[in-house]
Every structure is written in structure tokens, then in C-alpha cells.
Amino acid sequence: MKQQLEIKNLSVKVEETEILKDLNLTLPRGEVHAIMGPNGTGKSTLAKALAAHPDYEITSGEVLLDGENVLEMEVDERARAGLFMAFQYPSEIPGVSIANFLRAATQARLAEDEELEATQFYKRLYEKMDMLQIDRKFTSRAINEGFSGGEKKRNEILQMAMLEPKYAIMDETDSGLDIDALRIVSEGVNKLRGPERGILLITHYQRILEYIVPDHVHVMWNGRIVKSRGKELALELEKRGYDWIKEEFAEPAAKA
């Protein structure tokens, strides 16, 4: 069986509007793929549909995680199967510390009669925090409550480090970050790259790809992947913008 996340002919509707149309994409483990495209083209829809957000209705297609169809699975089952999404706008959970949140998420991955061993958990948590250069005081703060944009994104990366997903979908992780925060978050992602993990980096700007160099770049337009090439495609987009894509792939109806 191939160790890859395979999206086949995926179509997705949101409130009766079709956003993704027959989208195809394959993300093997060990690779980083970037999805770029103008606003409103369906990039975040792809992320949320993969994670089984209840507002996104899948009308056709398949998503195979290491050969297993995940479309039959609930949100939490997909997560436990190894699919992680770094949120563009992560929710606040008042009163729940980062440590307790991660304990609950880690506990959820154990067998029903198995109890999480607290000292081991904290040892691992502190190792990951040291690796990502996150201050240990951070763990007692309520999750995302009063966090700056950069802190929210670092928290997402910390969760990814702890949960060790097979596939991580990073939804506009660079949005709202200043240049220093972008560098720190990118360093975190780079540390989590490896043969055991596929990363799908969704972004509007080329800038983050200077820090996280992708193996492949896909361009999305109007609910489809319209171009897939190496990392040089990102630079071309940076130079030329998205207009030439729009022109090249405009719907025949729109042309007329």
C-alpha cells in the first residue's frame, strides 16, 4: 500500500454552491507540497473538507489515507487516523490550558482502558517545546485566549509536534504573521518535516516558501488544481501574479 494522501475527483459544496470541482492531488509522505492560488478559489475549503468540517458537503470523489477511505470517518476518527489540520483561525477554549488540551488529545489516542502517564507526557511536551523554542510558561495559558497571531500559530505547530500526524494540512499558517513570527513558525515546520510525514502548505503568498522550501507547488484556480510543478513555480507566481492563471483557465462561459 502506498503511504500517501490521495485526493481523487473531489467535489465539495458549501450551502448549495459548488466550491471544489473534481480536484485531484496526491501527497506522499516525506514530501512538502504547497497549494497557492488567489483568494476565494477554494484553498481553505479543501483543508476543511479534508478535516470533515460539518459545513462542507462532499458531493463526489474519494480521499484515501494510506489506502483507507477517510470520507466515511468522523472528524475525530480522521484525526486519530493521522490527519492534522493547522487552523487559520484556531478557536479559544476558555479555562483549558494548553497542557490539559494536549493531554485530552493524547489520551483520546490511547485504548479505552489505558491511562495517560503524566510524567512521560510532560517529559515529551517539554522536549517538543524545547525543540520549538517555546517558553514552558506557555503551557499553563488557556488555549488561544488572548494569544497574538504568532502565538496562535506556534501553538498549532506545538500541537502538530505532539500529535505527530502522518499528514498535516496547514491552512494559511502564514496569514497575520509579521516577518519574525513567520520565520519562527517556519523553523518549527521545518523541524517537523521528515520521511514519516506529508505536509500540505496552503498559502496565498510566496513569502513563506522562502523559509519552507516545498517539493512541489500546485496552483489552484476555481476549485481545481490547474498547474503542478517544482518549487520554481512559486517564484514565477511571485513575479507574474495570478492574472495569467486566471486568463489561461477562465471558464469558457466567462470568456464569452
Binding site: 478535516a51 468540517h53 478557536s91 477554549i93 485530552a104 488529545a105 500541537q159 500529535l163
Partner: peptide, 15 residues
Amino acid sequence: SAEQIFYMQQRGMSE
């Protein structure tokens, strides 16, 4: 909110 529940479920917790 439904978004909060979705966020936690995406981390592997049941509803």
C-alpha cells in the same frame, strides 16, 4: 460553539 467542538475533534477527541 460548533467551531470549538470541531477544533477539539480535529485533535482526536470524540464529541
